[in-house]
Design a binder for these strands. Sequence first.
DNA 1: GCGATGCTTCGGTGCCGGCCGTACCGTCCG
DNA 2: CGGACGGTACGGCCGGCACCGAAGCATCGC
Lengths: 234, 234
Amino acid sequence: MSTPNRMAEIGSLLGDPARAAMLGTLMDGRALTAGELARVAGVTAQTASGHLARLSAANLLAVERQGRHRYHRLASPDVAGLIETVMRIAEVSLPAPRARPRTGPRDAQMRLARTCYDHLAGGLGMAVTDALVARGVIRFDDGAGTFTPTGLERLADLGIAMEPGPARGGRPLCRPCLDWSERRPHLAGRLGAAVCKHFLDGNLVARVDGSRALRITPKGHLALRERFGITELG
Amino acid sequence: MSTPNRMAEIGSLLGDPARAAMLGTLMDGRALTAGELARVAGVTAQTASGHLARLSAANLLAVERQGRHRYHRLASPDVAGLIETVMRIAEVSLPAPRARPRTGPRDAQMRLARTCYDHLAGGLGMAVTDALVARGVIRFDDGAGTFTPTGLERLADLGIAMEPGPARGGRPLCRPCLDWSERRPHLAGRLGAAVCKHFLDGNLVARVDGSRALRITPKGHLALRERFGITELG
DNA sequence: GCGATGCTTCGGTGCCGGCCGTACCGTCCG
DNA sequence: CGGACGGTACGGCCGGCACCGAAGCATCGC
């Protein structure tokens, strides 16, 4: 099979509204059951099952059987990156749908703070990224990021634990990820995942219902102000 | 229109073999006529015309009218990045087609040296990137790249002119771009474009027929050895 | 065992869209 | 002007696939 055909295969997988909805939902990095995904896609269980089988066959999804449930999640950060890229291009290049895109409260919440696979995105993601730059943990210019030599200890000062060492599994430590809503790069990679985990584990943010959006807790607001020097988002 | 639907729209545009072939061909950064694109896609002119109209309507392509010709090119480096990303994921995650992918001489040429929109890729792209790192022009780690403070003069030592200054049009100076065949990041961004231009203008490489592949000229081999310290590719 | 639940497989229907033949429009050239 | 050429609009054909209903498996709980 030629390369263009392989690309077309991936494209057509992303090109169905039901599958796109499922993939978008899985962008929060969690694993969901076929039934949940059927609901978000607005199709019946048997239709969803077919979609999920195709996505898994193409190794875009990974499944874990657990009892009578099948948990589906994105197969890798690379796949998450692909989806984020497509979303960004869609946002940028597709002509505006119609007048104002009438952003609902849900959209506003998403833009303010959300997860992007396993790291922070949206206004919160940008602010945290900027704070880490300001505190000398990472450098972030030219749309590219690097961990500074002293980054690890400064990170520890912020209360975030992070194992040093080379990238495992080829996953970069500090990767830039172009933000879908902000259109500037935010922090991704292993460091981004660690930061996000710190925020979730420390109850600084909480997941909003079943979406990618995050709600910043009172404790989180305090920490952002005291430790990160962030007073305003977005 | 919701975000998943916008993503699906992009996906379905990439998801047709004929359109995928056209986009793949345009990855060399040049502008081609509708007739040429029809030929590479293996469809008639009227079919190609419809495809191109749809791609342009979605702002994935830009057209320039010139006499009775219409030249089509990728709308932006972002679109090129999107396509490269999809190709890479397709290569990595799609199950192997059948036994050995029987790479033809054409494929070998592509893997050795090619353009990726407007910068160098393949074995040559990796080698040049590594050489620039070794010579202290750029730093490239963690899958991210930055221009060093002394990079500009060291670049001039290599005979490559480059305007300094901030990114114009928001395009980063030194961006990493994950190589489709090598699966490591190579140099992209404005610097990558300048390097590629230097290689083409200086006749160090020449385009191979109508593909993205590049042939390294004798002069190019000499320059690679003498100036870049590159003796072996890939 | 039996039912309930979660998921998949199968069969059939309907629609979207890719494709081409034909015809039409604009540009270049003799 | 008239023909050649590149490109575009229209109409009809047809294959693929998204969808659902019904039925078939697996697993859990009683």
